[in-house]
Amino acid sequence: MMRSIMAFLKRIVFPVLLPLVFWLGVWQFCAYQVDLWVDGRGNQLLLPYPLTVLETFVSLSLSPSFWHTIILSLLRILMGILLGCLLGGLCAIFTTTSTICHCLMSPVIRIMRATPVASFILLLLLWFYRNTVPTVVVALMVLPILWETMAQGITAVDPQLLELTRAYHFTPIQTIKILYLPSLRPYLFSGLANGVGLGWKSGVAAEVLCLPKLGIGTEIYLTKQNLNIPALFAWTIMVVALSFVMEQLLTLWVSKKGGSV
């Protein structure tokens, strides 16, 4: 009994509930101070109470367009992440297997990493449909991260095992399945963990600037237009929650594929 209580405290209370309650308390306190010191619509314009945000969230979630908006943004960002993973993986293969490819592609990818996301968004807005831009932006943001981690993974593959696959006449497919994929899994895990967060940030930023017909970024832009700060908080919390859930699901999927390392 005592052991299960301790386990509950260690797994749920300390890592989840305690910080949640603490930071909600800090938020409530700050909102109260704003309410106290700023007259009129201080809470509505500067910092709403947590309960006001919850009410806004519930009222938003009762509208069917809320879920439609979320699904469309989710699909755009997920497709961007997958595209970024695919292209990043291909870049990693090319740059680790060919010196010429490494020389040619490394500067391009380094420039991509340093280019402000806003520049990408505005440029891509000229080249692509506004609904497609967030997906492309997410892919371009995720690509360098996956490229770097996967390239690290490919170069870190155990040379003795690699020699064994040659000596034992493994087919290329066998070598990929038995050696490369399991060796790369921790690197893919790490790349995805970083890529998903960045994907959501850049994807929503792209939606704010591109204003697709339905999108979380469009809704966030409208909250600014209407000075609806509780709705801005509600949408932001939704983005954070979605990013967290997607990161957990993708890492769970990666960790289940190919057994344990």
Partner: peptide
């Protein structure tokens, strides 16, 4: 030729059975 290396060179993620079925 088939060589057994001086090191075991086992795949940490493959079971005993899989090591044999692989080859």
């Amino acid at each position: 030729t088939a060589i057994q290396f001086q090191e075991n060179r086992l795949f940490p993620w493959r079971t005993v059975e899989e090591h044999l079925t692989d080859v």
